[in-house]
């Protein structure tokens, strides 16, 4: 059950306060924020290559939450179509990164 779980130790202060953190750390933080929008699905099920639409809990409200999360955490506006045309969490991450 935990075979897919990756254990990454993230020093949180570094993430919050440092502007030029390395790409993998930033991506992991994005995955964490993404996973936070779900209530039933275990955080360990979320990885960059997760096809989020296949997650059973996925819904239109969670899609709106992702858009609102990106606005709140990154100050970036994404559209419903950005979510619709993305397959993996990484696809969305790349869109957000390109608009930072």
């Amino acid at each position: 059950m935990y075979s897919q779980k990756r254990i990454i130790i993230i020093p949180e202060n570094t993430l919050l306060n440092c502007c030029n953190f390395t790409l993998p750390m930033e991506a992991d933080q994005f995955v964490k924020h993404f996973a936070d929008q779900f209530d039933e699905t275990d955080a360990s099920e979320f990885r960059l290559d997760t096809i989020f639409r296949n997650i059973e809990e996925w819904s239109s409200i969670i899609a709106l939450s992702i858009i609102a999360m990106v606005d709140e955490e990154y100050g970036v506006s994404i559209k419903g179509d950005d979510v619709r045309t993305s397959n993996t969490i990484q696809d969305l991450y790349e869109i957000v990164k390109s608009r930072l």
């Binding site: 239109s60 858009i67 506006s77 559209k79 419903g80 179509d81 619709r84």
Partner: peptide, 9 residues
């Protein structure tokens, strides 16, 4: 037009 809701929706 902000596009949060898609045209399909």
């Amino acid at each position: 037009n902000e596009g949060i809701i898609t045209n399909d929706q």
